[in-house]
Nucleic acid binder design. Structure first.
Lengths: 339, 339
DNA sequence: GCTAAAAATACAATCGATTGTAAAAATATG
DNA sequence: CATATTTTTACAATCGATTGTATTTTTAGC
């Protein structure tokens, strides 16, 4: 069977391949009659443009790479939805990759995307990503890079779309305070990630503003797994007896905590009220339903993608180090609804 | 700044680019000393192989495309985990795409993957996919294709890795029967998809084998959304009063049904027992926890990918129309635990 | 030290599409 | 009808890497 390249088409019509190429790209340099002829023949021969060749020649792939820790996390799959929407609108393709929270996977992915000459990269870094040496390659190859949500500092050539985690942490904590909680603990995330540092800072700020104790005993580190939440409540109640509220760095930990508390015979929210973070779908379904902070993943994804596309098709000079911050919002549910 | 191609490296070392290429590919045709020299220079110049050019020339991309309805569905993200594991082992890259249950998106994705010259495609089709005309392109371009889970019939050139949905439906239904249910309804999925037809057939078979009524009133079609389950229970209890068990085609519908039943004042499992399908993580967390059927997504993904890779690197002739069937297993939880 | 064999490198074509420019064909102008 | 102008098509280089073959260099053997 023939391969069906523009050259095959050209040969079979006894014309030049450059004319075929132009016809297939609907160039005004080719007259209507010839175009029709070529298009018909192309269809007939089952022609399929070879994007490798085309991209190589044009030095442009019309493709952006997206790197997230895990596609199964609801927050990330909604950012991806937003990204794909924005990308599709401008005729760009999206390659989705997951680092599975591993730095070495993230490095391999970046390397591969750059080798495949994507036009730009959107990334939400892994928990293991402390610095961006592997991302500097993007600057070297002049590939625009935009962080969303989980970012790292000090990469001046990139843009970022973030949510105001400080505000989220503040609002979550203050909500518990307003519900009457006096001794509120915080289960935090990996301390190398800015977002968790900021949620923690928001917690601290709210506690201080209301003159509540927030010492080390009340702040327990987790690695964001459900099992962490389960174990941490036991530890917490062991060291600090009279906790009446917990703000968790994400919903999974919050759910683990709820299960742990139930196992310890505590009732939610009356003994201890809980607030999570992320508004995972499960937070609405469990019982009691979980009060949480919604981040609007789709907007984040859309905005990040739009920013990236602006850099790719930059009319003006490179827009460096631009930051957009979105404000998350509290979703009140039963887990904090104290009488 | 220079582009850093093999030609740049060659020029700066005053040797030929073919030698550089061979050195970078660790060919035995280049002696150690030159290799070292070239590698050093390449690193120094920040060389990055252009995979577009390489793949074009080699006519091979070392990449497979994966198409799933939605990456956020737990079952699919676990198949993807299995796929990536198997692909990585053989040095293949994976491009993940989601059809979002839309045929036209699925078509665009297939087209794009083929244009990008992936070495093979793994697909679990959308709900709208009734026939495989867009997939026939794979045969035309000689691109191996393997279905997993959601497949369509009559595409003889492809392989498939399925689960025994008939058995799953049978086991789920029989479980309810053994738990003492007499009038069991089934909320089914889109009837164009084989898997839902098979689950339904399994349900029917179990009911018949135990001489239980299974007429049309008991079989209600859903489009697999939580909201469907919620609405369907009301409808069901309206038309058929004394239902005491429901087997749902997936977990989401089951959860909707549970919520609907609670809203109607029914208790689970005592008034009505429920069984879902898929073992989504949420099924373990809700209360009562949901009895369901586990499909072992990771194995499916791994096996499908291995089958595809075998076709890509086919030693023997094309293995066509091979089918592997996995047996799903029942996970007993509270939603069916009648006294 | 000289030829034969082996090792290392250079040359050149190729993958498929794109694109600037030259050439040819069609049309317009006087 | 001859020339100028415009349209259409052909030629040829290019993107960056790979690879079969030819050539040169090195090593071996005597």
């Amino acid at each position: 069977m023939k391969k069906a390249t523009i050259h095959e088409i050209a040969r079979s019509l006894n014309i030049d391949s450059s004319t075929v190429s132009r016809a297939l790209n609907d160039s005004p340099l080719v007259k209507k009659a010839t175009k029709d002829l070529i298009l018909k023949k192309a269809r007939e021969m089952g022609y399929k443009r070879n994007l490798l060749a085309s991209n190589l020649r044009r030095n442009k792939s019309n493709t952006i790479g997206v790197i997230v820790p895990r596609i199964s996390r609801h927050f990330f799959s909604s950012t991806i939805a937003g990204i794909e929407e924005a990308a599709y609108k401008d005729g760009f393709n999206v390659i989705i990759c997951q680092s599975l929270e591993q730095l070495n996977r993230e490095q391999r992915i970046v390397e591969n995307l750059l080798q495949n000459r994507v036009d730009g990269i959107l990334i939400s870094v892994s928990m293991e990503t402390l610095k961006g040496s592997h991302l500097e390659q993007c600057a070297v190859t002049d590939t625009p890079l935009v962080f969303f949500d989980r970012h790292i500092k000090d990469l001046p050539y990139s843009g970022q779309v973030l949510i105001d985690d400080f505000h989220g942490g503040f609002v979550a904590t203050e909500h518990l305070i307003l519900k009457g909680c006096k001794k509120i603990a915080h289960f935090t995330g990996p301390k190398n990630l800015e977002i968790y540092k900021n949620r923690l800072a928001g917690y601290r700020s709210a506690m201080e503003e209301h003159d509540l104790e927030n010492n080390g005993n009340l702040i327990l580190p987790s690695s964001l797994m459900e099992s962490d939440g389960f174990k941490l409540v036991a530890k917490l109640l062991d060291t600090v007896g009279d906790v009446d509220g917990i703000f968790c760095a994400n919903d999974l930990v919050a759910i683990g905590a709820m299960k742990g508390l139930k196992a310890l015979g505590k009732t939610i929210p009356d003994d201890i009220a809980i607030v999570g973070f992320s508004n995972e779908p499960i937070s609405e379904i469990i019982e009691p339903s979980l009060t949480t902070i919604d981040q609007n993943g789709e907007s984040i994804g859309r905005l990040a993608c739009e920013m990236l596309l602006r850099q790719i098709t930059r009319t003006d000079k490179m827009i460096r180090n631009k930051t957009v911050v979105l404000t998350p919002k509290l979703i009140e549910r039963e887990s904090s609804n104290r009488r």
